[in-house]
Design a protein around this nucleic acid. Structure first.
Lengths: 402, 402
DNA sequence: TTCGTTACTTTCGCGGCAGAACTTTCGAAC
DNA sequence: GTTCGAAAGTTCTGCCGCGAAAGTAACGAA
């Protein structure tokens, strides 16, 4: 029952494939698994037996939805005991640490936040430590911590640089590990969100998948071959150099019409403030644009056009099967969908496949959940695996033929 | 010796992996192959033995370059007898069919072209037939035909639509097959070039690889996971809807600053003609821009900026390991490299990895070579395989873990 | 000569897989 | 209710592919 190992690494490659498939794609019968993994029915019996015996998989409680009048012997869906483990995920902002506890499936069980008096590493570690203590009281099965923040992390542990925290080379992973005694993963927040959506969210099972986040800044992540592509600019504030409209508004750093200057929440608020003189929240601006107030409407329209242009460029060049819009700034989509769609149309071939666009409003707890997913990945893959996908060793080689 | 099968399909998966690796990456010793394919030395003996016995692989003649003072037993590189087979590749333009014969390695052995009196399918088939007859006389081992053209092909056989030929639903594959008796593949020319570069050219062995072609039109192709991504807009004249500069010059179809209107050879010539009044060739315009003539220089500069912007967008969003610029219009790179680089810099994060950009001047025979590569692929993979990469069945599934 | 080194071959044994036969459990037809 | 077919799952067998280890071959260096 509780004979689960501390990591899935001892599982054979076939067993791990089964466990991962069940983890990411809900309860699945053995025959369905056989189809998905391209294995014979016999192999599935062999692979699932040790997994059910060790308690990692259980036969699902057979929901009442099984009234589907199918013929033949009813299937026995296998499921993971998602609640058997708990994971803590944190998102660090300028003034608050947001924390969540999730199940193995990354469903959020609890939220709890802590204000930050300062941005000193010690202060942040203390806040995370106290939150973790509280989490561990309620969830003794807590077995991993993932932390997402705006900035870059080396080896998923050391914060290389974080402009908004003013950090350089802070060994956050080690500090939190020493404070809590739990394994810790530190990663850029956008990267964590991309992993989370690729494993458990909108990008589940997709080969090519793109995420664009809109908030205080912009974020972009690409999944190719089922694995997130790592780049040198990850966590360094992407989008300031995506010039959407060379004749657009001039930003503080001397560039015209960058995506950041057109699309981020602070930029939109600044533009409205500059023209109307009054300070309004993002939501107010969107509401006033809907009501037809000309100045906010113009700013929002410009933002929507920029967003549509970006989405079209992503679709044109990266050709993902799906694009996810996330972050606190996606409210724009609700109020300006026609403009966005028009901009996409204007920048994309009419015969092209329609852009598979999904929008997900994310608050800070969703970002924290991304951190928890990293912790889940570490348990499942051992060490710093990144995404279900071809073996790491294959990354740079020519994949096998046919 | 000549006991090669008509297709590699009877080979086992491991054998085909070995043969493909040798085919695309020159002569390789068994131990080097073992490293690349992640197999043991013993397995390599097992896999290579039937391949050498059947004559598909031979021990390389051991070039004199082996003076490398390495210790131990000298390696016996294995090679493919590239000249054992010949392949015909064709590129159809408005007024000419360009033909080449290549080896198994896609090295061009012969070129021969035929003028087209009309664009009627019968005329084109006749021209290809005559060229093939001539090729077959000189190369009795000719065993496949690949045809590239501007347009879309269904099932690699039927020309769906081709605007410049004025064709719709022309069964070109069947017609040429009946005329020549050889297996025929028909494909969009850009797609063929992408396959060729991905297998034998700049994109060899790369997981993510992008190709941008500049000529009478624009072309774009993306390789992800070692396989070319197919899209609905392939062969339908891409780039007319990539708005690079919303305040750019107005094109005939009412759009401003599209990549096509800024970058293609006809557009550049038209712009120069409109401002100077005289008709100049593309090469003349480039030369006059270099000499400092203001009007051509301005047009060329704008084109270079557009190209740099596009390259940056591709790098930003598709994150390929390499971008290849190809086509007849890449002469632009020679005369305006600094402007292109500046535009890339302006549209890309300064901390990002430098764009791995390669330029390849392509004439029509290079396009024809792309067709030949398709024929090679058919021989090697059987039927319509597309690129070395994960098994086709895996395409839509979640790849196996770790 | 001898030794270490590297490339390749041979042999052996194990693990993972498919395939076939079988069991279980359902719906549908009679 | 009985029978049949269909689908899910299990058990068993055989086989193929791989790695591990030992053996052979061909070199350079001491």
């Amino acid at each position: 029952m509780n004979a689960q190992a501390d990591t899935w690494v001892p599982l054979s490659s076939g067993e791990r494939a089964v466990a991962l498939e069940v983890l990411t794609s809900g309860p699945l019968s053995r025959s369905e698994l056989a189809r998905r993994l391209d294995l014979s029915a016999g192999s599935l019996t062999r692979l699932t037996k040790p997994l059910t015996e060790s308690g990692l998989l259980v036969e699902a409680p057979e929901g009442p939805a099984r009234s589907e009048s199918r013929q033949g012997r009813p299937s026995r869906p296998l499921d993971i005991v998602a609640e058997s483990r708990a994971f803590a995920g944190f998102k660090i902002t300028e003034d608050t640490v947001y924390g969540v506890v999730t199940t193995l499936r990354s469903d959020i069980v609890t939220c709890r936040d802590a204000p930050l008096a300062s941005r000193e590493p010690a202060e942040v570690v203390a806040a995370i430590g106290e939150l973790t203590d509280a989490f561990a009281r309620d969830f003794p099965s807590l077995c991993g911590i993932g932390i997402g923040l705006g900035g870059r992390a080396q080896d998923r542990s050391v914060v290389d640089e974080s402009a908004f925290l003013g950090w350089r080379d802070v060994p956050l992973g080690r500090l939190v590990r020493e404070r809590t005694g739990l394994p810790v993963v530190v990663e850029n927040d956008v990267s964590a969100l991309v992993e989370a959506e690729s494993w458990f969210g909108a990008g589940r099972g997709l080969d090519r998948f793109a995420v664009l986040t809109i908030g205080a800044g912009l974020g972009y992540g690409l999944v190719s071959g089922g694995r997130r592509v790592q780049t040198a600019e990850d966590g360094r504030g992407v989008g300031r150099f995506w010039i959407v409209d060379p004749s657009g508004p001039l930003s503080a750093d001397g560039r015209r019409g960058s995506a950041v200057s057109l699309l981020t929440i602070p930029s939109i608020r600044r533009q409205v403030r500059a023209t109307t003189g009054e300070d309004a929240t993002y939501e107010e601006i969107l509401a006033r644009a809907v009501e037809g107030e000309p100045l906010p409407a113009r700013v929002v329209d410009e933002a929507a056009r920029a967003l549509g242009t970006l989405v079209a460029q992503i679709a044109n060049f990266a050709m993902p099967q799906k694009i996810l819009l996330a972050g606190e700034g996606v409210g724009l989509v609700d109020v300006a969908a026609p403009v966005i769609e028009e901009a996409i149309r204007a920048n994309r071939h009419p015969a092209a496949d329609p852009v598979n666009l999904e929008t997900k409003v994310s608050d800070f707890h969703d970002w924290a959940r991304g951190g928890a997913v990293l912790a889940i990945q570490v348990l499942v893959l051992g060490a710093a695996g990144s995404g279900p996908g071809p073996r790491a060793a294959e990354q740079t080689r020519i994949p096998s033929p046919r």
